[in-house]
Nucleic acid binder design. Structure first.
Lengths: 267, 267
DNA sequence: TAAATAGTGTCTGTGAGACACTATTGG
DNA sequence: CCAATAGTGTCTCACAGACACTATTTA
């Protein structure tokens, strides 16, 4: 019923023509992307950071990202930024959480829609950013770049939050080095990593990080990195076998120097 | 190093003083809340909708919500709206997803941060909105208000989407009645419900909908409503027993007229 | 050929799925 | 008193956790 008139006696068409949103304060909206990969030898995770060349947080490292433009979705903005930054397209990219603390950006009111991106062959990607080794332990998060010899560390405590009748455990980071991430990016990092871990057990996300082919020892190493615990070979293999197929070849494992059967993701 | 100067030779303080974001187009940002409860007799779910009295979508039903104001978080905005709408505070409220299609609002560029709220005693809550029975079946979503005799229905198809190397199944709704939800609120509803269902098995969300005390038949009925399938009594009881304690009384089940042991959520 | 890693067989415990049964309650 | 619902006992099966073993590969 587009012709129906409202309390101001306007039709929908008339309403839309006279509508202005100028009376509301509006936030800027950015996307920030946690780009995660794995080291060449599958011995650790890597995260892509960029060094800020502007105020605020000048010279600090930050997650890549940028403003969402009119006429694009946040997903498109994140894809665009990711392509600018790494040249990569068609990779895993998923919205995690939207951060809205009014003072999270000292410049002005800026909300951030956080995305998680997974890449394979991290070290081979040409990027304007810098790859950091990401080391997440129960009480510590450490980021280290050998390129610039930068070390960023936070210590982690668990705090209990209540939502309605139930309580959650949440990770809270406190700075442990002088060098730190810009803005609230450590919170985005934590939130994204928790999401990754929880989704990793139910979906085949690992294949987005493993490359086209891989050996089972390598794939297991990757699972262990993300889940933060050792897995039993037999059980791990029983779990992944239905999802993969052997290529027939044998290749060197990246986690060791031994030959091992080569597999690929099936379907 | 706040005194360090940037490429324009400004310190951080100087930069922030001269900073303006007026050059960027900015979206309006709202929160929309899916408020979910259960019918008095635990025979179905209920959802709170409000009838729009303005263009666009004049006279359509919509999820309650409103603009996020400067100096508040999206969570605070959602809480505020929820209190305005129902008088309720301190109830379960969780961010689900942020919707950013540029044309999702015909007025102007509006993003929506969707929240899921769970309430108990839905029918007793005084609200400016209207409670709809929510009926979610594998191929159909139906909303019905006996108050205004309004029926809104969509049919559901599963579509496969690819993200990186893996594929998901997604629910896609197509209108099946003349009366429909405003904006993209059916998508928010679906997304929130899927989240509810997936989280329901791991967290004790049910207790946010069940009320302070309940019988096991009632609690089981609630689980079956959300999960969309029948559960075995024995197994269900084995699962919830560690989370509840008996009050010692016997009360009438709401799902039948029989007496049954009364329980409450423990810790 | 020895140490290290790839790969397999199998036992166990836990928890969901399933069914059968007894106890209680309301009409 | 009987039909319906509350509540209990227990079997099965799938799967994760755990350990022990054999096969292969590199140094």
């Amino acid at each position: 019923m587009p012709r129906k008139k409202d309390t101001n006696n306007l039709t929908e068409k008339e309403f839309l023509e006279q509508y202005t949103d100028a009376i509301y304060d509006k936030p800027s909206v950015t996307t920030d992307i946690m780009v995660l990969g794995v080291k060449e030898d599958f011995s650790g995770l890597k995260i892509l950071l960029v060094k800020r060349d502007e105020h605020p947080f000048l010279d600090c490292y930050a997650l890549p990202g940028g403003f969402v433009l009119k006429n694009e979705t946040a997903y498109q903005a994140a894809s665009r930024k990711l392509k600018d930054e790494t040249g990569l397209e068609d990779i895993y990219l998923d919205q995690i959480y939207t951060f809205t603390k009014p003072d999270r950006d000292p410049r002005t009111w800026v909300m951030s829609i956080a995305y998680l991106a997974l890449v394979s062959n991290a070290s081979e990607i040409e990027t304007k950013g810098e790859w950091f080794d990401l080391n997440i332990e129960p009480e510590r998060i450490e980021l280290y770049s050998s390129e610039s010899n930068t070390r960023i560390e936070y210590s982690i405590k668990n705090e209990s939050f209540k939502n309605g009748k139930i309580s959650y455990e949440n990770w809270v980071a406190t700075p442990a080095t002088k060098e730190l991430l810009a803005f609230d990016h450590i919170e985005i990092l934590i939130e994204s990593f928790i999401k990754l871990r929880s989704v990793f057990e139910h979906w085949d996300l690992a294949f987005n990080m493993a490359g086209d082919t891989f050996t089972l020892p390598d794939l297991q190493a990757l699972y262990e990195l993300v889940l933060g615990k050792k897995l039993y070979k037999t059980n791990f293999r029983a779990m992944v076998t239905p999802k993969i197929e052997a290529t027939g070849s044998k290749i060197k494992s990246r986690t060791s120097n031994k030959m091992s059967a080569e597999y690929k993701y099936s379907l």
